[in-house]
Design a protein around this nucleic acid. Structure first.
Lengths: 198, 198
DNA sequence: TTACCACTTGAACAATTGTTCAATATAGAC
DNA sequence: GTCTATATTGAACAATTGTTCAAGTGGTAA
């Protein structure tokens, strides 16, 4: 077969995302990828140009999935309840199920240096999109009377993302689930969002 | 010269720490290290056994320096004031001065997988020591009446470390100093420690 | 002065890295 | 059925990886 793509592009990117997310950019070799997504180097380079190119698309794939997960939460319940579910999922539930436990974007920001400036910038860009989505959800919470209208939602969104990063990093260092739940509770408590009453 | 060590061991480890901290474990090649610390491979391997061996000692060197920094803060002011200084230094002041902006232990935890289980375990171990030091400082704060005696200092220490991780990770994604200061303020505010009045 | 020994040196190793490209294969157009 | 455009293959590339080791160097003790 030829002329018509053997591999579904999106499926290939998803597999690559899994491996990159799990092992990081440097520890994932092209040979690892070739084996895992069952493509020969020629095909990969024809489709994505370089390891960096494939990684960049993986970052986007990851961010899309995260935003979709947040949107799914938002559809299932009230804005603030959705936030709580989203964070609890990311920090506690997906901790062992996901390839890394950490946010792939944060992991990338942590691993890479200016030697891969483009990837660094892309990770930052995608993280800011997630922050936008969090802010939008907080705006909705205000609109439906769930959140004090005097609160600065942009500032609160920044704080939420910072908490999310911290919680997931901490979860990687300490795998006691009870204490982790305690920590998430503390984080919610200090938000002043009265989440417990939703 | 020979027979007597040409290089001061501690000095060599400090240089290695700088490079590992900056670039991470995988992106730092032995050739990078050889050049940076001005030693030939034979000497390095005679002293440290392997790249992993040198990295492990670098982790310890980093943790020692962090604990010393915290101790220095503690000696300069009251326990809670010291905590505030310590966190502000790590998140805002050292952000550009230090090799990475991130905690080297968190960066290691983020980068490595079970393929380097020993290094992973060492990073976790050292992080728990830092948490111990934070808890001890909170105990002192209680002893001198600076902190509500009913608070669970172990739990508070965990929360503090989580915040520290989150703040530094966020600082890596967003380099607006004003907003960063705002974020640190928010973090302190939600601690319920009344830090502003110390 | 001699002998020793801890330390250093750097060429060399096999393995792995990201990447290229000429050869091959095949679905669809005419 | 031929042609063309596109996708795939896998051997091969130069460069780099972590590591080894035989040879060299020079202070110290006798």
């Amino acid at each position: 077969m030829a002329n018509t793509a053997k591999h579904d592009r999106q499926e290939v990117i998803q597999k690559a995302t899994y491996l990159f997310w799990k092992k990081g950019f440097h520890a994932t070799s092209m040979r690892n990828l070739q084996e895992f997504i069952d493509m020969r180097p020629g095909s990969i380079y024809a489709s994505f140009g370089s390891k960096e190119g494939l990684f960049k698309e993986s970052l986007q794939c990851y961010a899309d999935a995260s935003l979709a997960r947040l949107a799914a939460c938002a559809e299932a319940s009230s804005p603030l309840e959705a936030l709580k579910t989203f964070i609890h999922m990311a920090v506690v539930d997906y901790r062992n199920a996901s390839p890394s436990g950490l946010c792939m974007l944060v992991k990338t920001l942590s691993e890479l240096t200016e030697e891969n400036a483009e990837l660094l910038a892309e990770a930052k860009r995608l993280l800011s999109h997630i922050e936008d989505a969090l802010a939008k959800l907080l705006d909705q919470a205000q609109a439906c009377g769930e959140l004090d209208p005097s609160k600065d939602t942009r500032r609160l969104a920044r704080f939420l993302q910072m908490l999310l990063m911290g919680l997931r990093a901490y979860a990687r260092a300490n795998d006691d689930t009870d204490r982790l739940n305690e920590l998430v509770d503390d984080a919610f408590a200090c938000l002043g969002l009265d989440l417990g009453e939703c």
